[in-house]
Simulated assay, not measured.
Amino acid sequence: MAIEVGTEAPDFELKDNHGQAVKLSDFRGEKNVVLLFYPFAFTGVCTGELCALRDELPKFVNDDVQLLAVSNDSPFTLRVFGEKEGLEYPLLSDFWPHGEVSRAYGVFDEEKGCAVRGTFIIDKEGVVRWTVVNGLPDARDLNEYVKALENL
């Protein structure tokens, strides 16, 4: 079960696609965070979603907002994926311990061994203010993220 709106977002530290450590709490007091979990790099729906975010990046990475995309792929896979698709935002690896952060947010599918499509908008105080969780085959609507950010 995914964590609910009004809950303090679990802090975490994960390596990004360039080997840099990224902590959720680093953004506290500074930026709202769009935390997006996706199943796997190089798959059709995931690539489509992440490229759509790339194409609208100023809405999701700016002085007020930071996008963090998390999958259970290795950092090495994410580096190649990010380079191939021109993704200029952090791709975080929840590879080991496998799915630990995905589980903390309630979006890890134990049977498939990957995160489902969960998105959490976290305010500057670290509280979840909006969320959507879709099944593996169902892409999310980026316009919903934009509306939720406008309402913060």
Rank of each mutant, 00 (worst) to 15 (best):
5 V>N: 09
21 A>N: 15
91 L>E: 08
72 N>K: 00
128 V>G: 01
136 L>K: 12
94 D>T: 11
48 G>C: 00
139 A>I: 09
126 G>A: 05
93 S>Y: 01
112 K>M: 11
88 E>L: 08
74 S>P: 11
145 Y>Q: 01
94 D>H: 09
24 L>F: 07
125 E>G: 07
139 A>N: 06
121 I>N: 08
41 A>I: 06
116 V>M: 10
80 V>Y: 07
101 V>N: 03
140 R>T: 12
96 W>R: 12
68 L>K: 06
38 Y>W: 04
79 R>Y: 09
61 V>P: 00
30 E>S: 15
123 D>V: 09
57 L>W: 06
84 K>H: 09
137 P>Q: 00
98 H>S: 10
57 L>K: 11
68 L>E: 10
124 K>Y: 08
34 V>F: 04
75 P>E: 02
36 L>V: 13
115 A>Q: 07
102 S>H: 02
122 I>N: 02
91 L>P: 10
126 G>W: 09
108 F>W: 12
36 L>M: 14
75 P>N: 07
118 G>K: 02
107 V>Q: 06
148 A>W: 10
36 L>S: 14
28 R>T: 07
49 E>V: 06
118 G>C: 05
50 L>V: 02
22 V>W: 01
129 R>L: 02
77 T>C: 14
92 L>I: 10
149 L>V: 09
80 V>T: 14
105 Y>E: 06
9 A>H: 11
35 L>I: 08
80 V>C: 00
95 F>P: 13
145 Y>W: 14
77 T>G: 00
88 E>M: 07
72 N>Y: 00
146 V>L: 03
78 L>M: 10
134 N>S: 04
82 G>T: 01
62 N>P: 08
147 K>T: 13
114 C>M: 15
69 A>T: 07
14 L>C: 03
62 N>G: 03
120 F>V: 07
28 R>E: 00
65 V>F: 11
45 V>G: 04
42 F>G: 02
90 P>T: 00
141 D>G: 04
87 L>C: 07
55 D>W: 05
59 K>S: 13
16 D>P: 12
105 Y>V: 09
78 L>S: 00
3 I>P: 02
81 F>T: 03
27 F>I: 03
83 E>G: 02
26 D>L: 05
102 S>Y: 01
56 E>H: 14
23 K>R: 15
80 V>M: 08
102 S>C: 09
107 V>L: 04
111 E>H: 02
57 L>T: 05
142 L>T: 14
24 L>A: 08
107 V>F: 01
15 K>N: 06
73 D>F: 05
143 N>R: 14
2 A>I: 06
96 W>E: 14
137 P>I: 09
21 A>R: 10
128 V>H: 08
124 K>E: 07
133 V>C: 04
102 S>Q: 02
41 A>C: 06
81 F>S: 00
25 S>K: 15
53 L>A: 07
85 E>P: 03
134 N>K: 15
93 S>W: 01
82 G>L: 01
60 F>C: 04
94 D>F: 03
51 C>S: 12
101 V>G: 01
119 T>M: 10
117 R>A: 01
117 R>C: 04
125 E>W: 00
65 V>A: 03
128 V>F: 12
72 N>T: 15
8 E>F: 13
144 E>N: 13
80 V>N: 12
89 Y>L: 04
98 H>E: 12
32 N>Q: 12
40 F>D: 11
100 E>A: 15
115 A>E: 10
59 K>C: 00
